[in-house]
């Protein structure tokens, strides 16, 4: 098992290096320059050059790459953000909690919805309920996140103004007590978490449904029923215990979708997470920050995959012995 893990870990590191190297060079192909920020701002060529010199952007690209890689690998130094004038790591650490909160809430929404709907659909296979759930989830799954975001904002913030349309906290949140602040956060979290969670729930629901249908047709379920166990117990305890194994793997694999969905959701809802940070850093051509943000997302995605592999290996010895 340890050899398996080491092998997977080494492969993951290599993959991360590849992602970052490609990103590093592709970024420089995009037209634009970190010193062109705003309209009407007159930066003389001499000033632009001094800034580039200060940030090492005047050196040949391979040299910049080597210096950047050395700093990251040897000192864990991700460099200085050109648009925020602070260490990249501190900009990322500031944004990480917001994304973590949104992503966890979205996963909770996604799996709660998927389990409830998937089980309901599987138990009443080919009924009206099943059809309604399948069509409904397909519909949700096919909506672009930004559109879905704007629609819920329109519905719940303007037509029926019950929830805030943007931001993580109210204007006067800094005057609230800890409990008030937490409730305020929950209110702000509701819409973006629903949008991100529900748009991912479509696929997961179908997965739950298929997985449970398969499990429910097996002999041990029939045996459980024959023992006179309640239907609730049969489905949720005996059925789901087995149907849930692939779901855990799916969860780990859904990290990329969650992060890319979060980028758009965060921009639509002014949520101050990694997505917004990445978006703004691209507009500003803030190379070190883009690379840092890419590294962080890539690491999370690769970790997700690694976790999925490990989980798979845990449940299936054939994988780890291969």
């Amino acid at each position: 098992m340890i050899r398996f893990l080491l092998r997977r870990f080494a492969a993951s590191l290599l993959l991360l290096l590849l992602v970052l190297t490609v990103t590093f060079f592709i970024l420089r192909l995009i037209p634009g320059d970190p010193t062109h920020l705003f309209e009407g701002q007159h930066l003389t060529l001499a000033q632009q050059q001094r800034l580039k010199q200060l940030y090492g952007l005047d050196r040949p690209l391979p040299e910049q790459y080597a210096a950047w890689l050395a700093a990251v690998a040897l000192r864990g130094d991700w460099g200085t953000s050109l648009s925020q004038q602070r260490p990249v790591s501190s900009a990322l650490l500031d944004a990480l909690p917001a994304t973590a909160i949104l992503a966890s809430a979205a996963v909770a929404v996604e799996y709660a919805a998927a389990l409830l709907l998937g089980v309901a659909a599987a138990r009443r296979r080919r009924s009206g309920v099943d059809h309604a759930i399948r069509v409904g989830t397909l519909l949700l799954y096919s909506q672009p996140t930004f559109w879905l975001g704007l629609m819920v904002i329109l519905l719940f913030s303007y037509v029926w103004p019950v929830l805030p349309a943007s931001h993580m906290h109210s204007v006067d949140a800094d005057l609230m007590g800890p409990a008030g602040r937490f409730l305020d956060l929950l209110r702000h979290l509701t819409l973006p978490a629903l949008v991100l969670g529900l748009s991912n729930a479509g696929g997961t629901t179908r997965f739950v449904r298929a997985s449970l249908i398969e499990v429910m047709s097996q002999d041990y379920i029939r045996a459980a029923r024959a023992k006179g166990l309640s239907e609730l117990r049969v489905v949720w305890v005996h059925g789901m215990r087995n149907a849930a194994v692939p779901l855990i793997q799916l969860l780990a694999l859904s990290l990329p979708a969650l992060l890319s969905g979060a980028l758009i959701t965060e921009v639509v809802f002014s949520w101050p997470g990694l997505g917004q940070l990445t978006f703004n850093s691209i507009l500003a051509r803030d190379y070190p920050l883009i690379l840092g943000a890419t590294a962080l997302s890539a690491t999370l995605v690769i970790l997700g995959n690694l976790l999925a592999d490990v989980l798979h290996a845990v449940v299936d010895p054939r994988v780890r012995d291969a």
Binding site: Y158, A165, S166, V267, S270, Q276
Partner: peptide
Amino acid sequence: VMRVVADQASLLAQLLN
């Protein structure tokens, strides 16, 4: 308070409400 808003449409909406 200087509220940071993502785009013109959200800003207008927040002004109107």
